[in-house]
């Protein structure tokens, strides 16, 4: 095992070398500045974007859509998953729908959301929910399955009542898998919202990226891509950190 500080150092080195090569390629004339701006120029544009009221407003819209979708889909998805995982009869009847739909490209349903909800805020939230819900439900079903029957028997033999069983055994035992499902759901949710913004929208960072792309504003486009990528990775890492914290007792 490399020590973690050493690893971060090496990783930073790798990234810096790649950026350096990129910069060098552009300045030596190997790549065309018009299609591939150098990292230094992109960095300047990222700073500029962060000071731009318009960009900040669009980022806020996207975040609000993603956040609201997550607030709705997380409890709903987990609840459906728990029901399907816990209740044998309902589970056996309806689980296959979710397994099938989880594997289907949900993007093709986007036109349906436009036809139904228009092209505004509601449609983006609804589509984010739709993208995320299946992986959440399936994770929650798996979480129920991951609770050891022995634990339940032991708790019952100690006379645990139903409430204690849920709060003391089921919930903590399922937490790690549920949190992981939420993290995956978040990735799908962000992808859904940004894609919907790029497809048809009046606002949102996805909409801006699509517009920069169509008008060949390459530095802005690159800056937007990097900014969005950073933010998504940051959200993911925060959830992953939480996942590890909850997951300490497993291994």
């Amino acid at each position: 095992m490399l020590s973690s500080s050493y690893r971060v150092l090496v990783q930073a080195g790798i990234v810096l070398i790649l950026l350096g090569l990129w910069e060098a390629a552009v300045f030596s004339g190997l790549a065309d500045t018009r299609t591939l701006p150098p990292p230094s120029e992109i960095a300047i544009h990222i700073v500029a974007l962060l000071g731009d009221q318009d960009v900040l407003y669009n980022l806020w819209i996207t975040s609000a859509q993603v956040g609201l979708a997550f607030l709705i889909v997380a409890p709903v998805g987990v609840a459906i998953g728990l029901l399907l995982g816990e209740h044998e009869y309902i589970g056996r009847a309806f689980r296959p729908f979710f397994y099938f739909l989880a594997g289907v490209p949900k993007s093709v349903f986007l036109p349906v959301f436009i036809l139904t909800f228009g092209i505004g805020f509601t449609q983006k939230v609804a589509f984010g929910i739709f993208q995320a819900i299946f992986v959440l439900v399936i994770s929650a079903i798996a979480a129920v399955g991951s609770v050891s029957p022995t634990l339940i028997k032991v708790a019952r033999s100690y006379g645990a009542n139903r409430w204690q069983l849920y709060s003391q055994i089921f919930l903590p035992a399922m937490m790690p898998v549920v949190i992981e499902g939420m993290r995956l759901g978040m990735i799908f949710n962000i992808t859904g919202v940004v894609f919907a913004e790029m497809y048809v929208a009046r606002a949102g960072i996805g909409h801006m990226i699509a517009t920069w792309g169509m008008s060949f504003q390459m530095p802005q486009l690159f800056a937007g891509i990097f900014l969005t990528a950073f933010l998504s990775i940051a959200v993911n890492e925060v959830l992953r950190w939480y996942e590890r914290r909850v997951d300490k007792w497993r291994k």
């Binding site: 095992m1 490399l2 690893r7 090496v10 990783q11 790798i14 990234v15 990735i187 962000i190 992808t191 940004v194 894609f195 790029m198 996805g206 990226i209 699509a210 920069w212 792309g213 169509m214 486009l221 937007g224 891509i225 969005t228 990528a229 998504s232 990775i233 959200v235 993911n236 890492e237």
Partner: peptide
């Protein structure tokens, strides 16, 4: 030890943004 974690982080990026 070094590159794999980076690759797995990139998995969290909504790749649609690079299509333009």
């Amino acid at each position: 030890e070094t590159l794999l974690p980076i690759v797995s982080s990139i998995y969290a990026v909504p790749l649609v943004i690079v299509y333009p």
